[in-house]
Design a protein around this nucleic acid. Sequence first.
DNA 1: TTAAGTACTAACAAAAAAGTAAGTATGCGA
DNA 2: TCGCATACTTACTTTTTTGTTAGTACTTAA
Lengths: 122, 122
Amino acid sequence: MRKQDSTNARNEELILRNCGMAYTLHVIGGRWKASILYNLLEGRMRYNELRRAIPGVSERMLVAQLRELEEHGLVKRNVFPEVPPRVEYELTELGKSTEAMLQCMSAWGNMHRQKEQVVAAQ
Amino acid sequence: MRKQDSTNARNEELILRNCGMAYTLHVIGGRWKASILYNLLEGRMRYNELRRAIPGVSERMLVAQLRELEEHGLVKRNVFPEVPPRVEYELTELGKSTEAMLQCMSAWGNMHRQKEQVVAAQ
DNA sequence: TTAAGTACTAACAAAAAAGTAAGTATGCGA
DNA sequence: TCGCATACTTACTTTTTTGTTAGTACTTAA
């Protein structure tokens, strides 16, 4: 839960208003969101498929991150009224619009991580 | 301080190893880093210049975020042995190499934020 | 002589994010 | 009828991040 009247919350709002980059970080930042988006870029997936595809994620965290992505309009949740239940997650158009950006971030990250390993090995 | 043996810390390490995107988020994510990088892309700046340019940041946080950027090799700290002291911060080559990515994130963020405001106004 | 400016640091407190454990309802196969 | 599978939810604890306050040492201007 957020406290509306904390300096922390006010600072975040302030930055989100002024800085598109911070806004992006706010939307796609979060421990498991990169992994979720990465998987969904390949196509729709069921809840438990995602869970198995992302090692280490707990149910609570997976749901929480999916809900946040849904709130921000990147992910759509489709519920099929079946038994056993079936819920599929897929990217919205807005979600898909992140692809180029995410690839850019992925490429930069992979490159940078390599450099760090070279330095650490010396 | 990080606890090396927490699930939290282990999960983060796991993700950083496997996902370039998560690595990038780890390096440029943090409340004030977007603002710092944005300012330094224009050229070198003194500590207090940065502080005045970033409304809301406290000294402790500004220093902490600068140190992290320095550790990751994005920012260089230049100390001039003068009185009063002068310390200038500037982007390294690696820091500059983020420019295209940051602009991409900035553009996406600005676009998405606009959409959200349109939706909220209805 | 007092205040302001320089660039910080340290000890601490508050807030937010992440993780743990157990429980929900339903149906199917053994 | 026991356990497993589906897709979660709730209450709670731990860890991490962010913010607060006061202090450092030096110089110049009022």
